[in-house]
Nucleic acid binder design. Structure first.
Lengths: 337, 337
DNA sequence: ATGAAAGCGCTAACAT
DNA sequence: ATGTTAGCGCTTTCAT
């Protein structure tokens, strides 16, 4: 900047004004400065700029997900980046890989850079370590999963209702022995979904049989293995629900035709190749857009009490969930919410 | 920091030393400082830190992709984040959506933050605008696509060879009329792949018939439509090759069984659901890891001439590409490198 | 319309 | 082992 000022024969202050498009610079002077900027390849240093304008915004927000490589998280990231860009901010991204220690590290690296806000897909465990950053002014929004004990805006889908409806759907198609594959129960979403499974069974007067449920699954192969065992047992399930996209994808690979199936999410699962899969679809872009909206409102001064936004899911029947069961299938139940 | 120093009864310098774990602080003093840090919820301001240590590294790198929501790009992003984190850096991410203007904006926002380096999936067009940033010391690496006219390290796969081998594979299975679906020809990858298609035909002594080729496709539905038209024409192809994952996924949805098919990439395409799809697989994590390795070497002072690393692809036969054609199928050709 | 001085939070270099 | 001084590149504030 010094060099530009010298080259244009003005002070640094005038360069600053020109670079930031501020009023009060003679057109001739501005032109000289702009020429010097171009000639020297000068670009404003936003780092120094932010320092002097402490208390102002850094125009950086941070996004922490499980792993960007997962299609669902990738869609969240893409929408979050769009939202940030539209508001003149850039996006830092990090993956927790479901590890609380790693989550902390990444968040610390972000807050040290003085991000204006964080969009978190929180890992299980306490998030009290966020307090100092919040006290310093960093805004936080949770997305996809709630963080128990953290008092922030949250955007999630109706996980409970989604699985409850899926199970009800299978029940309406004549299934009574319905298997369930769930992820790590300490994750908020997994808990909600499992609760939905039990609620539907209980509402239908079907006993919740532990032998039909496998929780704590992490990978596709684990889910495939779990399905194989469920079906090999005496009196096996005639239908299976998978509690997330990774498990659904894995379970499908081991599932014989003839067993009804509903998967969660609509990204990793093939809509068109044969056979198409009935799924509970959520809208990751809407989740991210909602989270960004809440976050930027906070950044711009909104101090109202934290809100939780619950977005709907949609059960998309594509055949695999409509295979009739032994107790009179074929009759579809009334459209599920 | 002032407050911490006052609370611990020391100077700012001592706080700095403790916070950065430098030697030469009495254990008792360090303990007092640490207590004050915890009590006040102090965290070092990396923005100010970077300013003072100008010429030093910002520990930020930027990644620019087409769109993180694409599975291939998401895998690249995930691996890039891993690599950055292992080296103590954070990752800014941006999507160009194949728009050169948007690419420039995102890159400008990144370089204004003084990223140490950029990993680019370059859009078509000139990248001369990067010169000033490079002169200022920002390192640049291209990944997945080369940027013609930009003199940087580049990590790509052997796109030409991959498609050539796929076409050769289909030829060996008895196919002579082989259709090709390609993306925007101005993108480097698309050009290379189309070249591979023509090279294989020419090597096999088959005429390149324009009626069998559709270029410039952007979306899955466009690819589905293109396939439908190709097959509706008189003397239709008996086999089809799709030039990227989006097109492959779209084409599959419109492809009747009986037509042989090879897709590009191995992420959006179902490996296990029926019918499995023969693909040209690339390794996005290896691409990103290679790019990160080159980038960090540059950041740490490597000034050797720019290198281009070409990673192999793998043709994974899963049935759809091994459907025999009218000219004597069944006989597999020697393993294609 | 333009510039001079001061300082953002931190650390390199030099005292003590 | 600890403190002092100065200054990173910019912008705020107050002149001129």
């Amino acid at each position: 900047m010094r060099d530009v000022a010298a080259a244009a024969g003005v002070s640094a202050m005038t360069v600053s004004r020109v670079v930031n498009g501020e009023a009060g610079v003679a057109p001739g002077t501005a032109a000289r400065v702009e020429a010097a900027v171009r000639r020297l390849g000068y670009q404003r240093d936003d780092v120094a700029r932010q320092l002097r304008r402490a208390g102002q915004l850094s125009q950086i927000i941070g996004l922490l997900v499980d792993d960007v490589a997962e299609p669902f998280m990738a869609a969240v990231a893409s929408a979050a980046e769009d939202a940030a860009r539209q508001r003149g901010s850039v996006l830092l991204i990090g993956s927790s890989h479901d590890d609380p220690g790693r989550e902390r590290e990444v968040i610390a690296a972000f807050t040290a850079r003085r991000v204006d806000g964080l969009i978190l897909v929180p890992v299980a465990g306490s998030h009290r370590f966020l307090r100092p950053a919040q006290a310093r002014g960093t805004k936080v929004v949770c997305v996809d999963r709630a963080a128990p004990g953290l008092d922030t805006d949250t955007v999630v889908v109706d996980n409970f209702g989604a699985v409850r409806d899926a199970v009800r759907h299978l029940h309406a198609h004549g299934h009574r022995r319905i298997g369930y594959l769930g992820g790590r129960p300490e994750l908020w979403t997994c808990g909600e979904r499992h609760r939905g499974y039990r609620a539907a069974l209980s509402a239908a007067g079907v006993a919740d049989e532990p032998a039909l449920v496998r929780l704590g699954l992490r990978t596709g192969p684990e889910a495939a293995d779990a399905v194989t065992r469920l079906l090999a047992a005496p009196d096996p399930p005639t239908a299976v629900v998978a509690g997330n996209e990774v498990l659904a994808s894995g379970a499908l690979s081991a599932l014989p035709s003839g067993v009804a199936f509903v998967g969660f999410d609509d990204l990793a699962l093939p809509a068109r190749p044969r056979p198409p899969v009935t799924v509970i679809a959520q809208d990751p872009a809407a989740l991210a857009a909602g989270a960004a909206r809440l976050l930027f409102a906070r950044i711009h001064g909104d101090t109202s009490p934290p809100r939780t936004v619950v977005l709907p899911t949609r059960l998309i029947p594509r055949g695999s969930g409509e295979i009739p069961g032994p107790h009179g299938g074929g009759g579809a139940e009334p459209a599920s919410e």
